[in-house]
Design a protein around this nucleic acid. Sequence first.
DNA 1: TGGTAAACGAGACGGTACGTCACGTCTTCGC
DNA 2: GCGAAGACGTGACGTACCGTCTCGTTTACCA
Lengths: 186, 186, 186, 186
Amino acid sequence: MPRPRSEQARQSVLAAMRAALASDGYASVTIEGLAAEAGVSKQTIYRWWSSKAAILGEALLEGSLPSPDLPVTDDLAADLRAWFSAMSTQAGDGASVELARALIAVTATDAELGAALNKRLADPIVEQIVARLEVARSRGDVRADLDAAAVADQFIAMSSYAALLGRPMDAARADAVVEVLMRGIG
Amino acid sequence: MPRPRSEQARQSVLAAMRAALASDGYASVTIEGLAAEAGVSKQTIYRWWSSKAAILGEALLEGSLPSPDLPVTDDLAADLRAWFSAMSTQAGDGASVELARALIAVTATDAELGAALNKRLADPIVEQIVARLEVARSRGDVRADLDAAAVADQFIAMSSYAALLGRPMDAARADAVVEVLMRGIG
Amino acid sequence: MPRPRSEQARQSVLAAMRAALASDGYASVTIEGLAAEAGVSKQTIYRWWSSKAAILGEALLEGSLPSPDLPVTDDLAADLRAWFSAMSTQAGDGASVELARALIAVTATDAELGAALNKRLADPIVEQIVARLEVARSRGDVRADLDAAAVADQFIAMSSYAALLGRPMDAARADAVVEVLMRGIG
Amino acid sequence: MPRPRSEQARQSVLAAMRAALASDGYASVTIEGLAAEAGVSKQTIYRWWSSKAAILGEALLEGSLPSPDLPVTDDLAADLRAWFSAMSTQAGDGASVELARALIAVTATDAELGAALNKRLADPIVEQIVARLEVARSRGDVRADLDAAAVADQFIAMSSYAALLGRPMDAARADAVVEVLMRGIG
DNA sequence: TGGTAAACGAGACGGTACGTCACGTCTTCGC
DNA sequence: GCGAAGACGTGACGTACCGTCTCGTTTACCA
């Protein structure tokens, strides 16, 4: 019989979070500010979320970080270059960088929640890479003993590090990363 | 002519910061708490540091993060494995992880200060790697067109990412990273 | 629609102010001290009062300074003596002296607020005197051209001055004042 | 061998106190402000004065509050009117009012020091009045049993009260006071 | 077609920490 | 050894948000 949860209030809060992230950075987001911006009472926020980080988490999982598809052609190196360039470019626009930095800020504060979020967000990317490398392996394009997950980690670590430093990668740097990973050092 | 700055107060504050990081994490470090723990007045802190982040920066630059030497033998892969394992191990103890996470937290909040700090801390490591790869290049152990700085970035990005997730690398994972970088994908 | 102002908090603060005045004097009353003593947060005080002086004002207007009634018999001099003695005695106990001294301290600091408070507190007394002297005039006990308000001012000025010096008047001095005012100099 | 106390520093401090009183009121006078304004170190102030109040005291006793002479003619009422009007007028200019209000503020805070200061400042005035009334008594102009000190107190109390309220007396009000005191109520 | 119970906005409440100001003490150096 | 300069520990200032708690209002379900 009770009134059901207001979806509109929920969306207002998530939108307010995204807006606040874009304009001020995660650290200066406040619950009071979100409530005011969203036209919602503090109580409503506390009723449905346990912390600022939880709101961020929901906002991230919903309006999610961009992840272009990894193409499958005959040229693995070209595929990776195309995909990683696209990803770096997409991640380079202001709003996405701030989302990523906010994710990092939360993770640096609460490793547990952060690891869970990172997993949810990174898993689809890892799967794509692992699948693509599996294809390549079956074609004999890569070593049979390649640690595909380790490669995926490298890509993600580089992207995170670039976002963290607020120094998003341009195409040249993205290509350099792919180059190093494709050919190795020696 | 006035009384000179108290070096003892300065050291107390930095020590208090390191202790607080180890026990509570950067986010719950408080200027008031530092002052109390250090036996110093808030005013003294505000006189010499502009923010919590600035104190962290000084603490990091001083009692710096550990960085083992990169050995130079005939076997580049073995050298990198030895060095990166040692670094991962050292970085794995509680205090160091918290220092690194704090650095990341600051950087996620203040990209400018964070970038400066990261540069100051990462530069010596990058130099070591670049120099070692130069030696390798002159011996013909690596490709002539290798982007040594990109390789160094890979190592640092992986270390940071591991620290961020609170999932420090063990020897096996460290070796996997070196393996991928040494041999490349194909 | 929000929760209404807590009358209990308000009373606690006023009581804490009165207690602090009695034990320490207005100058060493502290908002923090009041808050602690009243079991109230600082924010609650700042929400409802604009300054320490405003709290004092409310405390004064509420638990007001004592003012005995001016009797009306056939003997004006005896009435004034009785009334002024009573007033001086009442005003002489520790708590009342401190209230009066606090009022003076506020007034010396903020003439505007002080004047308003003095008016609110003095007006009833002035009215009593003016009314009593009007009765006396109609009986022919006083000069027709007497400036009753000036007389009232004299009484109040003397009381204030005595409180200010922390030298409350005893019956003899109170009588001397009445004597001078009744008979004049010549 | 020791350097003697600098009279110049002393005068600078007293001048700074008078200037600060005139422009801001006693409550917002600050030792640090005085030191800066006087071009003197805090230590020098603390070496020679025990408190802000002590500086005010010295400033008052030195550049003293105005006190016109009480004339001695055949007409006592006229003499008192002339004198009290002059005193009210002199006391009415901005700087003097602020000096008086500062004196009251100190007294309201520290009754002991305040009483001492009031005595030093009021005594000459009281003496003048007592002497004048003595002359009047010997001429038969006033009652033989007049309490001259009580009369003097009335004048001083009225002046203080007027200064306290920041409502300096004009000639008419001053005359009204004299009128009441001269002729009494009846 | 009400009644009713939870969700909502508003915002007061006790707190903690913020960054600033002035206190009174101290240390240093120049005169 | 006085005095200017100013660092120090202390403690109050007034502000911002925290998370909790009433309030009175709104609204969807169920009787």
